[in-house]
């Protein structure tokens, strides 16, 4: 790896030698990744290379088989459930499909984390929800709709509003632009950049959309066969000198990365 390492004492997330396998299928094979404070790192990689698994390991939704994951210098692998819940308060997450709760109106979706922490009344929570919706460019009237009544782009925005509602220190974005038209994708990218900057939050995203990666990343890392094979500042991505990276960012079928075409 030929990256200028961020200052070690100011690392928000630090992964070392993370392994995860499902049955005989090795998904993560000694993954190392650093994310500095207020940095926006985007992990790129093809479908099925373990990007989502990596994210789920950091969030504690999956337990890695081996390796270390530190958040703010604190080891989170093998942590107790109560401590884990405490750490998760620092996190916000935008899910790929939005993952909005369809039994609740939009505003309760946005305010869900606030209501769960019981720090605000329902009335206050509603006000905060409306202001967060405004931050992502949605009017207050959307708050009373059900998530099923929204378009895909609006659902993503509501998901973003929910992710930032409790002012998290770290926000995860799981394929934020997948399934959106190019213009809406760009709107979402802008919102991600704007909101994370405003909050001074650290961002870790996974995507295979290079336009999105270039826009939201300070640093890009490429995941291939369970390892980070290249990482560096966004402006260096075109001169990476790495054949895998070049094949991926140019979207060529020929190259060192072989896709399993057989079903």
């Amino acid at each position: 790896m030929t990256e200028p390492k961020p200052d070690n004492s100011r690392l928000k997330i630090r992964l070392r030698g993370v392994h995860k396998r499902f049955g005989s299928k090795i998904v993560l094979d000694g993954l190392d990744l650093d994310v500095g404070v207020s940095e926006s790192v985007v992990v790129i990689g093809g479908s099925g290379t373990g990007k989502s698994v990596m994210l789920k390991c950091i969030l504690g939704l999956l337990q890695p088989d081996k390796g270390s994951i530190q958040v703010d210098g604190e080891e989170v692998v093998g942590m107790s459930a109560a401590a884990r819940e405490e750490i998760n308060r620092k996190f916000g997450m935008l899910f790929q499909g939005g993952a909005l709760f369809d039994s609740l109106p939009v505003w309760e979706n946005v305010a869900f984390g606030l209501l769960a922490e019981k720090k605000v009344t329902r009335l206050e929570a509603r006000e905060i929800a409306i202001s967060k919706l405004a931050q992502v460019g949605l009017g207050g009237e959307v708050g009373d709709l059900s998530p099923a009544e929204l378009s895909g782009g609006m659902q993503k925005r509501v998901g973003l509003a929910r992710a930032i509602a409790s002012d998290p220190e770290i926000i995860f974005f799981d394929e934020p632009t997948t399934g959106l038209d190019p213009i809406m994708a760009d709107v979402i990218n802008d919102l991600i950049v704007k909101t994370t900057r405003q909050m001074g939050a650290t961002a870790l995203s996974i995507t295979h959309d290079m336009a999105s990666a270039r826009k939201i990343a300070n640093r890009i890392a490429m995941l291939y066969e369970g390892k980070i094979i290249w990482a560096g500042p966004t402006e260096n991505i075109d001169s990476s000198g790495n054949l895998y990276v070049e094949q991926f960012i140019n979207g060529r079928a020929e190259g060192p990365i072989k896709m399993a075409v057989r079903a």
Binding site: K56, E85, M93, G97, A99, F112, G113, A116, E117, S166
Partner: peptide, 11 residues
Amino acid sequence: EQIDALTTLST
């Protein structure tokens, strides 16, 4: 992923 989302919202 709504169940995963619950976990990330301290629930």
